[in-house]
Each structure stands twice: as C-alpha cells, then as structure tokens.
Computed example of a mutant assay.
Amino acid sequence: MINQNVDALPNLAHAPIGVFDSGVGGLSVLRHLVQLMPNERYIYYADTKNVPYGNKSADEILFLTLQAVDWLCKKGCKLVVIACNSASAHALTALRERCSVPIVGLVPAVKPACQITQTGQIAVLATQATLQGKLLAQVIDEVATPMGISVYKHFEPMLVPWVEQGMPITHQVADLLIEQTSQWRQMGVDVIVLGCTHYPFFRQFLQAWIDDNAVPMTLIDSGVAIARRVQSLLAVFQIASPDDAPHGEPLQFYASQLTDDVQMTAKRLADMSVSFLVD
C-alpha cells in the first residue's frame, strides 16, 4: 500500500497536490491546475533520468510510475495527478488499487474530439505506449466506434525530446510535424488530439501553421478536463485548500536528474515561480 491518509481531512486541506511526469511535459497540465486552483500548493516530480516513457515496456513504465507516486505520497501529497499519458496507460489501475489518496490519470481527449468533429475523422498524436495502452483502446471502442468515427494514430519518437530541447522551429522534427498534419488534412481529419502532455507546448506553433493555411482543423488536449476533475475530487473529499490560503507559492520542482537544461526548460514552460529542490 502506498500510504497517505485521506481521512485526516484538516491536515490534508493544507497538503500539496502532487504532479508526476516522465519529464517537463506535465507542466502543461500543471498550468491548468494552477489557473483553476491558485490557492493550492503543488509538488512536481519529473523522472528526467528515464525520460521518455513512450518507448519503454509496460512493466518498466509501471515500475517507474509506482516509485514516483510512492515518493510523492511520502512528501505528504493529498492527491496525485499522473500528468503522463504513457504512465496512465500502464499504471493507473495498479495505482488506484495501491494508493490511499485520489489518483487522477490522463487519457487522450478522444471523447471531446468525437463530439466536435464534422468529418468523422480524428487523429491521435501520442507516444507508442499510449497508443498501445488499454485506456485509449477502451475509449475508442466505447465512444468513437459506435459513432462511426475513424481514429488515426501516430507516434513520432522525436517529439518529446524536441519539446525538452526547447522546440526550435528550424529542427527536422518541426518539419515532420507539419508533414504529418498535411497528410491528415488530405485524409479529411478535422480534429487532432494532442495525446501527450509534452505536446500542448508546440500547440501554438502548429496552430499558426493551421491558421496560415486556412486548414479547417482543431487541436485539443486533456489539460482543462483534468484540472476540473481534480477540483471535483478535492470538493468530494473535502480537502480543498481554504479560500484564504496564500496565492503564488513557488512550485516545488524535483527531478530524478536535475541538470541545468532541465531547470532552464522548466522555468520557461512553467510560467510561474519555480523552486528547484533536491530530495
């Protein structure tokens, strides 16, 4: 059992929310959390020593994720967000069985994509682990298939490293991203699901290409829905931070390998004050 007692309500109201990702990509989810719940405290843990998770085996992802969540629980987190689609795909069920705090995981936003598509053709851009995971297969079977909606899957292994490196637009990966989007356009795809928490960070770049070429295509991710789910769970368990809690406390950022590059990228992507700490 990964221990943390949700019954200790008075103490947990002031406890932090834990956010975990294999790298800095989960900061895209964190930004939605902070925007919706600015009174909360947050601890972010990035397993930068083992990033990316998308090309690892299911067992390896499970092991690494259990270790990370155990660490966050020992830090006193009242709720943990698995801000990593690959980790959610292979560890979410096990985490919910073992943890005594609420666990919120991610699944690519296929359901909202199906609700807004006009052509019945959507695409999911995600890691290999996410695309092969049971969570995505389940939502496609339950939502897309009954509606007769085609779901195209694509994995580009260099996207996560590209984001971690700062997303230079002259990079080969930027060209590959535009090329793939062009192919989807020709196939009639009108909604692209950004199915990895790293991907919203290049949303502005891709949206600019869509706008410049007048492409009838919408980009969508899971960030807003996850933030609302967290807010709902805090209310259900009565562990939300009080309204008079101070705003703007620096993000506590931990990493399994805290390099200068990680710190520089995290500062740029977090869009808030960051305190880098060593356990």
Rank of each mutant, 00 (worst) to 15 (best):
A109C: 03
Q252K: 13
G76E: 04
L62K: 13
G76N: 08
F20H: 05
F237D: 07
R228V: 04
A174H: 11
V110I: 13
L131H: 02
M187D: 06
I2L: 15
R185Y: 14
Y53A: 06
L12R: 14
L135H: 05
H14P: 01
F201H: 15
D244A: 14
L277P: 01
M187F: 08
L9T: 15
N85I: 05
C84V: 03
H90S: 09
F155R: 00
K134P: 12
V163N: 09
S86M: 05
L36N: 10
L62F: 09
L136E: 04
N55G: 12
F155Y: 14
I17R: 02
A129Q: 03
I61L: 07
C99P: 01
M158Q: 15
L251M: 10
G133Q: 02
A68K: 06
D261I: 08
L79W: 05
A235W: 06
T145Y: 06
R268E: 14
D244P: 04
Q35H: 15
I61G: 07
G54P: 06
F253A: 10
P246D: 15
P38M: 09
W162P: 01
R98C: 02
Q172D: 13
Q204M: 12
F276C: 08
D243S: 14
Y44M: 05
V69W: 00
K75F: 02
K78I: 00
V163L: 07
H198A: 03
G25K: 02
Q35K: 15
A214R: 12
L233A: 07
R229L: 06
Y44D: 09
R185V: 04
D261C: 10
V163C: 10
L136D: 01
P246Y: 07
Y42H: 07
P108G: 08
L72N: 01
R185N: 13
F155P: 00
G54I: 09
A266Q: 10
S241R: 14
H154S: 15
A144N: 02
C114V: 11
S100F: 09
F237M: 06
